[in-house]
Amino acid sequence: MTETLQSLVDDLAAQRRTVTVYAADPPADLAERLSDWHVDVRFDRLPPESGDGFITVRQGDRFLGTVPLETVATLFEPTTGVLDAETTETGSLEPLLELLDDTLFQSFERRQLLAATREIEDRAWRHGRGELHAGFQRPAALAAQRAVYERLAESDLDVHVYFDGEWDAPSIAGVTEHSESDGELGEFWFVAFEPDSAARSQTCALLARERDAATYGGFWTYDPNRVSALVSHLRSTYVDA
């Protein structure tokens, strides 16, 4: 069977994880929002004087880690990131994304995907070497992020962008554009960073398909083999075609 972006989502053998929320009171809508990630959600009440809450993530009997509740909340709002402001601090979402990598999510909004995308773009910017591939679905979405990709192109990254339609604005210096009409590029949001071989641990990607009402389902991953499969598909289908 010919590999497609959808087949990469379908082939993900995501194992269900358990997220336990520890807080004095259940945060409004949090359980419902967490249910969009292929996870089981539990709640464990803390005494009122315990302060801020936190979550833990397990896979079977294996404890994967913990993050503050406020970190989870940031996933529902876009983050600034080092590419948008004069700062070099690591984005606060990274610990959460690493705990939930290779876990399917079912219904994310654009602002949630933007927050996760910023973490990957920031990681690529900080490392500054390797390949960055980003799918914008439509030319207008790339135009809205032009300043970000102009800055990314100032590094030693090999930057490729993808969209469905015609790009009628000036090209972005240092960025290679790939387009098609009425194909998979119009349906998927993705960003993949494949660093040079000396920094394999920095590999990461996000792949999501747009559903109705501007919501998305897909996954993010820090698995070098899974990222390589995505980048290989993009190279063979659009870069080297």
Rank of each mutant, 00 (worst) to 15 (best):
2 T>G: 00
2 T>H: 00
2 T>S: 02
5 L>Q: 00
8 L>D: 00
16 R>G: 03
17 R>C: 07
28 A>D: 04
29 D>N: 03
31 A>M: 07
35 S>E: 02
36 D>I: 05
39 V>Q: 00
42 R>F: 05
43 F>R: 07
43 F>M: 14
45 R>H: 06
48 P>A: 13
49 E>N: 11
49 E>R: 10
49 E>K: 08
54 F>D: 07
58 R>M: 15
61 D>C: 10
63 F>R: 08
63 F>S: 14
64 L>D: 05
66 T>G: 13
69 L>Y: 03
74 T>G: 09
75 L>M: 14
76 F>D: 07
76 F>P: 11
78 P>V: 14
78 P>M: 13
79 T>P: 10
82 V>K: 02
85 A>S: 07
86 E>N: 13
87 T>I: 11
89 E>N: 09
89 E>I: 09
90 T>L: 14
92 S>N: 02
93 L>C: 08
95 P>C: 13
96 L>A: 12
96 L>W: 01
98 E>G: 12
100 L>N: 05
102 D>T: 04
103 T>A: 13
103 T>M: 08
105 F>N: 08
107 S>K: 08
109 E>G: 15
112 Q>V: 15
115 A>F: 04
115 A>K: 03
115 A>C: 08
115 A>N: 06
116 A>N: 03
117 T>M: 11
120 I>W: 01
127 H>F: 13
129 R>G: 10
129 R>E: 08
133 H>I: 11
135 G>H: 01
135 G>L: 11
141 A>E: 01
145 Q>K: 11
148 V>G: 01
152 L>I: 10
155 S>M: 09
156 D>Y: 10
157 L>P: 09
157 L>T: 04
159 V>Q: 02
160 H>K: 05
165 G>C: 15
167 W>L: 15
170 P>N: 11
170 P>C: 15
172 I>E: 01
175 V>P: 13
181 S>E: 09
183 G>E: 11
184 E>H: 12
184 E>K: 11
188 F>R: 09
189 W>M: 13
189 W>A: 14
189 W>S: 12
190 F>H: 10
196 D>K: 06
198 A>P: 07
203 T>Q: 05
204 C>W: 00
208 A>S: 07
209 R>W: 00
213 A>D: 02
213 A>V: 06
214 A>G: 03
215 T>E: 00
215 T>F: 01
221 T>D: 05
223 D>K: 04
228 S>K: 06
228 S>L: 13
229 A>W: 00
232 S>E: 07
241 A>N: 10
